[in-house]
Amino acid sequence: MTLHIKLFAVAMQKAGTSNLEIECSMPATIADIKHAVLERCPELDQVIPHCRFAVDDQFATDTTIVTEQSSLAIIPPVSGGT
């Protein structure tokens, strides 16, 4: 099925979009999603290893299960604050 992933900062810049569409069979884990993201958008290969993924506004791990309703985002290392 088609999933939408929010991109920010350098991930958005490299992918050229803030809303990446990927195809992934369900059920899927974050590890599966990462694989699908890199297939869809190889420009992110240097970035993804440094990023965390968020599912429903919480940090996820490679084994986190994604459902059709999940809200997904790629979180590059943060630099807010000062």
Binding site: V10, V47, H50, P76, P77, V78, S79, G80, G81
Partner: peptide
């Protein structure tokens, strides 16, 4: 906050270049 709150900054340098700041990347 500086580790876990998803807020990012972009430096607009005086030489005209721009960089997102991502510690470790």
């Amino acid at each position: 906050l500086k580790e876990d709150v998803p807020i990012w900054k972009k430096e607009n340098w005086s030489d005209g270049t721009k960089d997102w700041v991502h510690p470790g990347l």
